[in-house]
């Protein structure tokens, strides 16, 4: 139980404090827009932080990114990717690679076996920001 509590705390710290060291090209920063048809969070109990929380659609230079986070009693148990950039093969390729890694990273801090992953040099600002907004909704 102690392990679970520690892991929860660390995951919140880990995910909330992610930041992107992003390129600063001549494009404006990504702007969060409300998703067109947001599914209402499936709350099952007020403060228990259980349910699936849909993150905002984040417009990145590569295209829109949106994820949904599933929490059980405050623990992040799954991240479902609703949208990733797919305009061209390369975008799709990067998303196919990066997204499972990010999910692994987001869940990893809660795994009893793995605390983090080395070797992922991913680009993922949209994922992180969408996940962040999902966690904000959850109050996690």
């Amino acid at each position: 139980m102690r392990r679970a509590v520690l892991a929860t705390v660390s995951t919140v710290a880990g995910v909330v404090l992610l930041l992107a060291l992003k390129p600063h090209r001549a494009t404006p920063p990504p702007v969060a827009v409300p998703p067109p048809g947001r599914t209402p969070p499936a709350h099952s109990g007020g403060g228990s932080r259980t349910g699936t929380f849909t993150g905002q659609v984040i417009d990145t230079r590569y295209g829109p990114v949106q994820v949904a986070a599933t929490l059980r009693q405050g623990r992040l148990t799954a991240v479902k990717v609703l949208q990733t950039p797919s305009d061209n093969g390369r975008d799709q390729e990067i998303a196919d690679y990066a997204v499972p890694r990010l999910t692994q990273e987001a869940l990893g801090a809660q795994s009893a076996r793995i605390d983090a992953v080395s070797g992922a040099s991913y680009t993922s600002e949209g994922y992180i920001r969408s996940l962040q907004s999902a966690l904000d909704q959850a109050g996690a």
Binding site: G14, S121, E125
Partner: peptide, 14 residues
Amino acid sequence: MGTVFSFDLRDPAT
């Protein structure tokens, strides 16, 4: 292409 940094603190946040 950016790089994501994350901090994972296992101590109480003073």
